[in-house]
Design a protein around this nucleic acid. Structure first.
Lengths: 204, 204
DNA sequence: AAATATAATAAACAGTGTTCAGTAAATTAC
DNA sequence: GTAATTTACTGAACACTGTTTATTATATTT
């Protein structure tokens, strides 16, 4: 890449360029293979330059995490549009699991890594996308509770019950810990478990 | 520490000494704060010496993981002794969560880190303790299904349903992601959710 | 043309896992 | 008792990591 080309590209866009390189690296080599120095190499700047645009590596990971929610929302599109709240819950569950299994590195950053969370804490920010996701699920649960006239069920607890189930399922699968239950075909195992979870809650 | 003291200590016991130092470091500073060089410093040997006793860092983390299951079994003692299978499930759930919340670094190693699992894969070994734990839970579920005459419920699926729920719950709590649901008192939130999970499955 | 502001960097600091040639001490063989 | 061999260990290097700071080159303003 020539010097002229680079000059044209950067200026106001260097932050974006850094994030694009970071994303490329995340998807190619995972969070462990993502280093400031390699980003610097990729975009042909020195490592120090990156620190003029981001406070530290956690800040970059935090922005990547936010981008990850964009990717997840694509998976959720159809599910969110479901009219029936219980069908919506089912679809959200499926989409969530599919997103997790197909996007290990995004998922890790969004729901497991403490680095983006450390940035949030440091900057006194909030986990906005996480909150929005949970709020939507909670509202869907409220509708399901109302529709099914379920008694003594708190919408928040129900939402958490669903979230932690799929979260646990995805994590067990991503860390190869489901293999002890069934060597191959963990996809089927996951499907069956999700169906069982929703069935035990809503009785079909 | 003098030279005589060291001579006496090591010999056949160096491997143990390394693991003890590693455990101390894990509990004091977490997995990120655990380095081969710091272990070497602590036991007053060179870093290279450690590689005469362990193939690599993953091998050390794998042995630590196995030690972690020992710690967890202490938490499980009373629960395992429960006669009634449903009460046993409840107690196991409680003990599992308590262990996870009180032992973040052990838990991380046992149920999240891919480094011990990489060692297992490399050495063509099995995740023995994980399998034993799941087998016991599955057997308990079989008993519960029998006792309650539950129809169309597979013991394995039920066991996985329970495991992934508490696993997800612990992970959300440990990564500070439960705070979006409830700022303080996440302990109560977790208890309520566990109760809800078991209630929806066994109807009281 | 001189003074100032901006942008980028080289180099250093303090760490990481891992390997390998080389050394010192203990053991065995003669 | 000396020589040969084995065992136990280490220093130094390699290739990395995130981060900071003094310095330089360029661009803008006075």
């Amino acid at each position: 890449m020539g010097l002229a080309e680079r000059k044209e590209r950067d200026k106001l866009e260097l932050k974006k360029t850094i994030l694009e390189a970071a994303q490329k690296m995340l998807l190619a080599h995972g969070q462990d293979g993502l280093s400031i120095r390699k980003i610097a190499d990729e975009i042909e700047y020195s490592p120090a330059t990156i620190y003029l645009y981001f406070a530290d590596k956690d800040a970059i990971l935090h922005e990547l995490m936010e981008m990850g929610f964009g990717v997840m929302n694509e998976y959720m599109k159809d599910a969110f549009a479901q009219k029936d709240p219980i069908k919506r819950i089912h679809s959200i569950g499926h989409a969530y699991i599919r997103f997790g299994l197909e996007n290990k590195d995004w998922y890790e950053l969004m729901f497991n890594s403490d680095k983006p969370m450390k940035h949030i804490e440091k900057c006194c920010e909030d986990w906005d996308q996480g909150m929005a996701m949970f709020a939507f699920l909670t509202e869907t649960c409220r509708q399901a509770i109302e529709l099914h006239k379920m008694e003594n069920v708190e919408e928040q607890i129900l939402a958490l019950q669903l979230w932690c189930s799929v979260h646990g399922l995805v994590n067990l699968a991503l860390t190869e810990r489901l293999e002890i239950v069934q060597q191959n075909n963990s996809q089927v195992l996951i499907e069956k478990t999700l169906d069982a979870i929703i069935h035990t809650i809503f009785k079909e």
